[in-house]
Structure formats: C-alpha cells, structure tokens
Design a binder for these strands. Structure first.
Lengths: 134, 134
DNA sequence: CAAATATTCGATTATTTTTATAGTCTGGCA
DNA sequence: TGCCAGACTATAAAAATAATCGAATATTTG
C-alpha cells in the first residue's frame, strides 16, 4: 500500500473541499493554489471523484466543486481504493482486489501480510474526512 | 508498501534457502523450479542479495547459494527494504527513506500514515526467515 | 588438461504504471 | 453574445518494474 501521487492529491483535494464545506462551490483552481497541486491533473482527479459520486460539480463562471456527502461520510479507505486499488501489501491478501501472487506459496508469510492488510484497512475505513480536516 | 514481484521472489528464494539450510549449497535452478520463479530474474535477485550480504555463493559445477546468516538473523523488513525501499505508505513518514510529499500538508493524515508505517515496520522487523519456513 | 556446469554482471529490452499536458466541447451566467 | 469553468478524451513523457541475453569467469569432475 504505497500511495501514488494521485491518491495524495485526491486526499488533499477532498480535504480542501471539506475545509470549505460550508462555502458552497469551490473552483478547482482555488484548490490547486491552496494545496499546491497541478491544476490539470487535479481536474482529472476531480473528474474521477465525480464519476464515483464523491463530489458534485457545476459548470459556468459561478461553477466549481463540492462534496457529494458530508465529510464524515467519506472514508480515506474508499478514496485510496478508488485511486490506487488494493490497500493490501499484495493482491493475494486483498479482500476487494484478490488475485493470485507467488507469495501465496508460503502460508505463514501470507498470514503476516493478511494481518497488515487488516490493520491498514480497519484504520483507514474508520478515518473520515471529518477526522482529518485541519 | 505494495510488494513488487521482485521482493516476493526474493522472500521465496530466501525461504527456500532457509528450508534447505542444512544441505549446504543450493543451485538457483533448484530454487527456481521449486518456487516457480523465472531463473534469470532469480539470478539477478540472488546477485543483489549476495552483494548485500544475505547469501553467499560458490561457482562451478558443485556451486550454488546458501544463507550468509542463520534464518533467525534475517528479518523480512530488511529484505523488503533492500528490494522495494521504504515500508511506509508515503516517503514522508519513512524513517530510512524520508522525502517530502504533498500529504505532509495535513498533519492529522500524516499521523495516521505514521501509525501505519510503525505497525508494519515493527511487525516485519520482528519476523525472521526462521518464523516463516514451512 | 578438457568438458561441463554454475555463478557473475552489465547491457538491453519490454511492459506497465505513473504523472502530466493539450485541446476541444459544453453548459451557465452576466 | 461572450466569457468562464468544468467535461471529457486523447496522448505523451517519464519512471518503475519485470524479464531476458550473453559473454566471462570460476570450479569440479573425468
């Protein structure tokens, strides 16, 4: 579970939207400036977040983005799974992205990796945007 | 901390050497066959392991590889760090591979990631080859 | 010594993933 | 109508990952 730049950006963007949750629509340009993210790349990420129902948007000169749910309804786990796939250290211990991998040959090693995946999944599933807004 | 194929192969190779620890020199071909690894890629991995002092080798028709230490002296953590780098989910919470990353902007998120890195590091640092031989 | 065998080690290639940019289109507001 | 901001697709640059090749060298055995 190494976070890609993309998932770091996605988290920061959602955090920004959570921080300005009361203000209505936020322009991607403002998010990019505040969080120091490349604007066009951010647009692409927001597009993905929109398609998956985490944010809503409005076009036009008074347009922008806002969260589609309250900050406490969005967990970090779902965002990372959307952007990076499995939280697990190997696919063979992933609950949602299971796939065979060579290490499956060793049951004891697999058990340890599974414990790691469970710790990470549980921790990130109970952490919501509301918990990390600054 | 998503394991690369390479680090899975490295673990399996070392496990194989640990399983045959008493038998002296083991040919890479035998490891490749037993653990179903691509021979040439495995050779490259064994070469890295040798340069870092985890295995010793001997050439020639009666050559092969053996562990340079006892199975209980080799931790999974060091092997993964050698092959993949940081165990941490982001470099900005890595102890041995620290580097700035965007998520550092949010202290609460960073704290959670740090807890994950600590759990993973502690767990893998106390797991040795001796613990996982089958 | 010669043949066979196994590691050495750099080079190279292939593939995938990651990161990012470009550009056109479309809807909304003044 | 004309600008503004998101919508969406395409594509490309860069980096990481995965794997292969092949000649060189060392060692054992016949």
């Amino acid at each position: 579970m190494k976070l890609s730049t993309k998932s770091e950006y996605a988290c920061l963007a959602l955090i920004d939207l959570a921080e300005h949750y009361a203000k209505g629509l936020i322009k991607s340009e403002d998010i990019a400036r505040r969080k120091k993210l490349p604007k066009k790349f951010l647009d692409q990420i927001l597009f993905t977040l929109k398609n998956s129902g985490y944010v809503k948007s409005k076009r036009g000169s008074a347009g922008g983005y806002r969260l589609a749910k309250t900050p406490s309804q969005i967990t970090i786990a779902e965002i990372l799974r959307l952007m990076d796939g499995a939280l697990a250290p190997v696919y063979s211990v992933s609950t949602y992205f299971y796939e065979k991998t060579p290490i499956e040959q060793n049951k004891k090693m697999l058990k340890i990796l599974k414990e790691i995946r469970d710790y990470v999944a549980e921790k990130l599933e109970k952490t919501t945007l509301a918990d990390i807004v600054s």
